Amino acid sequence: MIKLMSVNFDDCIPNWRTQLETIEYNVLVVVREGKVRYELNGEEMIAEKDDVLFIPQSTRRSGTNWNGIPHQKHTILFTMDRHEPTGIPFLDEGKCLKFNLSHIQYAYHRCERLYEEMRGDKSYRTMICLGIMQELIGMLARELEKTELAPSKRKYADTIKSYLLEHYRDPIEIESLAKLIHRSPNYVTALFKEVHGHSPIRYMHQLRVLEACSLLLHSDMTIAHIAQYLGYYDTSYFYRIFKKYTGLSPSDYVLQGERPDISKLFT
């Protein structure tokens, strides 16, 4: 049985380090920004943005900022009954692992929700936290079962993703993405979906809506201004897209007393 110990968010801590010790718990590390250096059983492992690490119980571990530069990461500490197999291969094998998730943004938001719930006092907190933790573990296990992608496919998908991250507010057409990697539009759509689980256009809308959520809560911009800023020149279309991904209209999103759970953006 999995038992959560603590959930932390290390937000650019200067001189961050953990002493060399044999840990008596398991650790999931999800890196959001920068790089972190670990020594795991005498071997160096560098984890950077979008990397996920699993560090099993009984690992001799130390950690520090990479080259002294602060980083951002989520860490989840948990224990298991070592005498009962979980049925999750990477947990039962007990080996140090580093890998990427197709739905890394969704994983970020589940970590954020877990962090908030662990520090709250609402009813059923323990059950909700365990459910989120089990979901994260299931996502990791499923990812590890996938057939290894050819390096060229990963490179093409990363090129497209980087372009979308930089230009998501601009008009995006599949044809223009295809020219980036000198492939056909159909290939681009199929490749991106294979690597990231959804189409490039859906990813663009996710990025825009995520930005809209932040602007609605933390700026004095009007909804119409936000729509135009994000590349939606028809405000009614922005309303439809926003509600499609969040389940709420922009106005209802602002009116909610607590910050709504926007993890559904990445499902």
Score class of each variant (00 low, 15 high):
I2Y: 02
M5P: 05
S6N: 14
F9V: 02
P14I: 12
T22L: 01
Y25M: 00
K35D: 01
R37G: 06
E39F: 11
I46N: 13
E48V: 04
D51P: 07
D51Y: 03
I55C: 04
R60G: 00
R60Y: 07
R61T: 15
S62K: 15
G63K: 09
T64F: 00
N67G: 02
N67T: 05
G68P: 03
K73A: 13
T75L: 06
T79M: 06
M80A: 02
R82H: 06
R82V: 06
L91A: 11
F99M: 02
F99D: 03
C111Y: 10
R113S: 08
R125A: 12
T126Y: 08
G131I: 00
Q134C: 04
E143H: 05
L144K: 07
S152Q: 10
S152N: 04
R154P: 01
T159Q: 12
I160N: 03
L165Y: 14
H167Y: 14
I174D: 00
A178P: 05
L191Y: 13
V195F: 09
L207D: 06
E211V: 02
L217E: 13
H218I: 00
T222C: 08
I223V: 11
Y229R: 14
D234W: 06
D234E: 11
Y237S: 07
P250I: 01
Y253V: 08
L255E: 07
R259N: 05
S263L: 02
L265N: 14
